[in-house]
Write a protein that binds this DNA or RNA. Structure first.
Length: 341
DNA sequence: AATCGGTTCAACCGCGGTAAC
DNA sequence: TGTTACCGCGGTTGAACCGAT
């Protein structure tokens, strides 16, 4: 329904930064009487502020259990993980970070995490690889003089599990993927699904919580993050879960919450299953087949290993071979060579 | 030392949900 | 059932801060 601003009836109320005296009054009043009705609090506390302003000041700054200072890497990981599932539900995310406010998390996301993800070629909204042209251009610049085929072989060839590609290699992977996505309009190239970086990076894989390596565990999933809470971003989460689905997410979430499974998730768990959820929000199909020769994730044993490149198939069968052909072609490849070189 | 542009974050704005009447 | 009041949330703003020149 909405309503007019709570303070419009009284234009004389003070706005802007709070003074130490005002803070003191507010703290003093609430510690003695509790906040009660925020609307009437300012009058009762002797403050020339609107109730909303008092509530904000209290919940975001003066509350005694506020935890101030820099976010730890764990905090950051938790924020990314929950954002990939919940989206911009800052208050819900804040509920999993005791002492942190939704406002603080929102600010931190917008000023730090968002930029980090963008730099890495990850869309912070969808947690999927970016496909916009500006990003492609910046990636191509980042690549500088790199060579596409060597990029692919370096990034995908014989990398041992656990040895993550550096940022340049990531850029190469991203560029290739994005170009392929553009070419195959409406299709989803499965590099993202199988991207070892996305799956193994604790900051990007929601399953990678609190020391649980989704690439190594081998359990049946039985939990879900949906139900009353919308499955906001089926993208990364369901992709990761479907590709690498032998994980106990509830344990991860329980660990996050200091050992006990959060109430919300218990409630959710009792009503839905991940399979149902995935059925409702199936991961995007890989319309362009991921070439076996480039490596696939072995879900049967140790999780999502990238198999070493084995060139047993016809070399002309893969999209990457087509790519090399395309790039070798004097006429059609010149444009792409310009971008890539 | 002064200026400028970018970044950070506290505070504000306005809307949606919902309880109370 | 419709209206009003209130709370909480997410998006936005702008002053303060900071580093580069």
């Amino acid at each position: 329904m909405g309503r007019s601003p709570c303070c419009e009836e009284s234009s004389s109320v003070k706005k802007g930064p709070w003074t130490p005296e005002e803070d003191e009054k507010l703290i003093d009043y609430i510690s003695k009487h509790g906040h009660g009705s925020w609307r009437t609090l300012p009058k009762r506390a002797g403050l020339n502020r609107c109730g909303k302003s008092c509530r904000l000041r209290w919940t975001n700054y003066l509350r005694p259990d506020i935890k101030r200072g820099k976010f730890s890497e764990d905090d950051e990981r938790i924020i990314i993980n929950f954002h990939s599932v919940l989206g911009n539900k800052w208050s819900k995310i804040a509920a999993h970070l005791p002492g942190r406010t939704d406002n603080e998390i929102k600010n931190y996301w917008n000023t730090h995490i968002r930029k980090k993800l963008l730099k890495m070629g990850i869309d912070p909204e969808t947690h999927k690889p970016r496909t916009d042209l500006n990003h492609l251009m910046s990636l191509s610049q980042l690549l500088g003089m790199s060579n596409l085929s060597s990029a692919i072989s370096t990034a995908w060839g014989n990398k041992p599990l656990g040895l993550q590609p550096d940022i340049t290699q990531l850029a190469k992977i991203q560029l290739v993927q994005n170009l392929l996505q553009l070419i195959n309009n409406n299709s989803f190239v499965n590099i993202g699904n199988n991207n070892p970086y996305l799956l193994s990076n604790p900051n990007l894989n929601p399953l990678f919580l609190n020391g649980i390596n989704p690439l190594q565990t081998n359990k049946e999933p039985h939990v879900v993050l949906s139900g009353s809470e919308e499955y906001a971003n089926p993208g990364l989460y369901s992709q990761a879960q479907s590709q690498c689905s032998q994980h106990d997410v509830s344990k991860s979430l329980a660990d996050l919450d200091g050992g006990s499974i959060p109430q919300d998730y218990n409630k959710i768990n009792s009503t839905t299953t991940s399979r149902e959820n995935l059925a409702e929000n199936p991961p995007l199909p890989a319309l362009v087949a991921f070439p076996p020769k480039m490596g696939t994730f072995n879900q049967m044993d140790s999780g999502c290993n990238i198999a070493a490149q084995t060139s047993t198939e016809s070399p002309s069968n893969t999209i990457f071979d087509d790519w090399e052909k395309l790039l070798d072609d004097e006429t059609s490849g010149s444009y792409w060579k310009e971008i890539l070189e």
